[in-house]
Amino acid sequence: MHAIHVENLTRLYRNGRGITGVNLQVEQGEVFGFLGPNGAGKTTLIRTMLGFMHQQSGNIHLLGLNALTQSRAIRARVGYLPSDPALYDLLTGQQNLDFALAVRGIKSRARVKELADRLEIDLKRRLKTLSRGNKQKVAIIATLAHDPDLIILDEPTSGLDPLVQEIFSSLIREEQARGKTVFMSSHVLSEVESLCDRVGVIRDGKIVTVDHVENLKKQRVKYVTVEFREKAPDLSSVPGVKDLACEGRKVRFTFHGAIDPLLGALAQGSVVDLNLSDPPLEEIFRAFYEGGGGGR
């Protein structure tokens, strides 16, 4: 059973935007990253999964339950953190959490206390007196306090300072270690890269690719800088070499493909220095948006 099983899902707005024919499976115990720029359809998919919006066609199953007919049972087992969470401003953090836990029928506040200590937040203060980052912390506690099986996070670290982001990341890793499934949309690619097992990329309401982070990294190009003792040989005809730029004895280019022909070509000259570097995941992400596919 998949933790998330989305089948041919379509939800379009009146302006024609939304999501079209989305298929997605997330395994139990997996941390899944969902990437896409604003307006790509990330939040629409999340809101449809949670029943805030109804699909026009397709099926959604979360934790084996039908999102349309068993939405309440799903929400009992799901923790959701919106991108810009809004809780009741006139209540204290504790009162907000007490309300949420009371609705869920949970009496123990041990987990709340543990999370509040970890995130260093004073729950006795009214929400309206808290900064955006501190409100976000209360929302994180509300997301995790009932020990959900599936955690859905929409841009979770926006508004958090780097130190709290680190605590949040460790909380997510701990949840994964406890067998929980995490689905997170994000713009912070380094966060996705470090936390997620697999990544889905959405563009214009359609899933462009879903793959393991490691495979995506393999697809990507290398940045290559070579310095020769004398004049650089002609590398333009080597398969996989692109964006070639020569600066005297120094050559820069991007490379994708089998490495042997490149090494053979480099051996025609006398190499003084060779540097191969991995571009960040941003490059892959950008490639999907600019080129309409993976890699280059």
Binding site: L50, A73, R75, A86, Y88, N96, V103
Partner: peptide, 14 residues
Amino acid sequence: DRRTVEFLLALPVQ
């Protein structure tokens, strides 16, 4: 208007 509806409807309530 205050977007607290998200917090409310994310709870297991009909």
